[in-house]
Design a protein around this nucleic acid. Structure first.
Lengths: 210, 210, 210, 210
DNA sequence: GATGAATGAGCTTTCATTCAT
DNA sequence: CATGAATGAAAGCTCATTCAT
């Protein structure tokens, strides 16, 4: 009982530590995707990792902390992958919007396990007090990015005037739906999905309609 | 040991039985909304209802059956309320679409607890075998209704040509997102939400935009 | 809560009562034979009888008392049937022994359900204190009858000298084994079984050998 | 979560594990003997062992598996003890028969608790499906050994011609009866029991009688 | 007589967590 | 670093029994 609080840096064997943490997180993701949150016991994770149950408690203070680190991990990977696509296009609102949709659907489509794990955590995990561990407030940063794009488009006159927040919510909604389809293993045609969604939100935001 | 199979109707004392069943279902909904599916144990439900744990097993063969009856109950109420709104408008696709959006958001807005309970069950409940108790196939009937509306509009020429299934998925997605906002107690302005959504899907389906 | 102690006689409706008791006992036997003692809950018995669970408690103070009455019932029927066979032969020890074996195996063979029910009760039923409800002391009367036959045969010189008690125990053992075979539904040839057993115990008790 | 599957042998700390398993099995036997199968809950076993209920589940996957290991344990001990007596005598059928009777009664007499525990399991334990966990088919190997001895004796001419299976059943019946007497704590004189049984089955199988 | 309703105690099993080694 | 051992709480479910009607 020494580790856990992760003021890492001065440790001797940071390497082993990082590897173990990564391995446990990876196995947690796989277990979540395969069995769902409720069945994702430390025992199952440990079995999948081929390590002892107690070792998980050694590296992560609690199950809750482990789950939070899983979220952080997936977010980090996702942000890194998606930002590449987005930064590759001009900073014009409509281009940004298209890139946003496209990069999100691509990432989801390419990481079904991670996406499903994330879904399980967000939708099921609760604090001991009973409230959701990840509530809507955790979505705010994501929403703000979208709102920002919409407001910019309205400012430049590219977009019509609509409630930017509701539009952001709706766009996130459709993306999350796509996640859940992919998560449950539904066959979806990525290309047509991207095309239809760009068309849908293109028309929804477009000024020129009558 | 005779109850449970619910060939109810001809019993003498159906009254007590029906009342208890209703009470238990009600308390289950409340517990689901308050604590989430995982924490919704028979003990918690019984405590909320002020009755003995065993009494729940007396009226419902299993926890799974209780949950399925909760779903049935909410669906019944929902269908009854929403069909009134929908049947009040002309059977033209665009009117139907508007009525669909409006009635759904209204129902959700008026029944936050029920909506949240439903969400908990759909997203979290698993069979003993491990698979989701309510999978995406259970959503199909709901989707078909929407697809039907869209296809009819395309046939009559009111709607442009788009992928009706993806459009249906996206509409359901935004409605479910609204559910989750309401479910977690977020303050949302029902009227503007309805307005924005009708506008959004109006434009998305509209033919005249060049 | 009036009945149960069975000081019957002065009751008005003794008839209904007797019929109900008989019906419950019959259904208990069937349930015991079909499901075994552990699964023979009052609920199952009531279901089979098409009556309410509470009614059983109305007629029998406890589950234990019901079981005791089942035993008494089967014993009564058995004694009545078997005594006819036994009393039909001369009172000579060897004839009595043969008649005893034959009548027992015949009765067992003809009442598999009762025999199995009896077995379930004797072998499984416990008092709340933990001790067997029917211990070996309950077998004593049965053993005494046999011992008596053996001792008489030894007195008349028909039988050799052996330990009459052990011989009685062994004869009962083989009869009970036959019960259990019949009880589990094993196909057994009654006639050859009778023949072999008469031969076996004939030789075992016979004086003339060597 | 690694234990339970008992591919034991190469573990480092097999010692504690083996000791605990043995202790739990021992306490299960005692509880079975004292309270009978139905009352032998994991709670009672744990209490007797002075350990936590959950620890039993840690070492044995289920109650059923624990019971099966109890059976295996007693069988192992029994086979080891009895085979010594049997292998010490010539392989002539009559000697084998005598040694069989003697070794069985001796073992039973020396292990009343084990014998009673075994009886409780065999006569009472059911699978979740409802059928007996150990049915008559599990007795077949034991019966075959005896039948074999009898048939050999008939082949060599030492034994008269009789139905070897029924004779085997009857011999097992008397041995099991002895078990149950010992099991319930009845005082029995082992030596005279052995003598009488050898005499009984000696005569029953003997050719020379008249 | 008979019923439905209700209770409380008991069951097996799962699990996060702790701790000595 | 890592393990096996152990705990205690909680879960869903069954059951004999009681009681008002």
């Amino acid at each position: 009982m020494r580790l856990k609080n992760a003021t890492y840096g001065q440790h001797r064997s940071t390497f082993t530590e990082a590897a173990r943490r990564a391995q446990i997180i990876e196995c947690t993701i796989e277990t979540l995707a395969a069995l769902g949150y409720a069945q994702t016991s430390l025992a199952h994770i440990a079995e999948r990792a081929g390590i002892n149950k107690g070792l998980i408690s050694y590296y992560f203070t609690s199950k809750e902390e482990l789950m939070r680190q899983v979220v952080t991990h997936i977010y980090t990977v996702g942000a890194s992958e998606m930002s590449q696509t987005i930064e590759a296009v001009p900073r014009r609102p409509r281009d940004q919007l298209h890139a946003y949709i496209q990069s999100n659907l691509q990432f989801i489509s390419g990481h079904p396990k991670e996406v499903r794990a994330l879904g399980e955590i967000f939708l099921t995990m609760r604090r001991k007090s009973g409230e959701l561990a990840f509530g809507p407030e955790d979505e705010e940063p994501v929403l703000h990015v979208l709102e920002q794009i919409f407001r910019e488009g309205q400012a430049t006159g590219e977009f019509r005037l609509f409630d930017a927040r509701i539009m952001a919510l709706n766009l996130r909604a459709t993306i999350d739906k796509f996640s859940s389809l992919v998560g449950v293993g539904r066959e979806v045609d990525l290309k047509s999905y991207i095309r239809e969604m760009i068309e849908l939100f293109g028309r929804a935001t477009c000024k020129t309609q009558e």
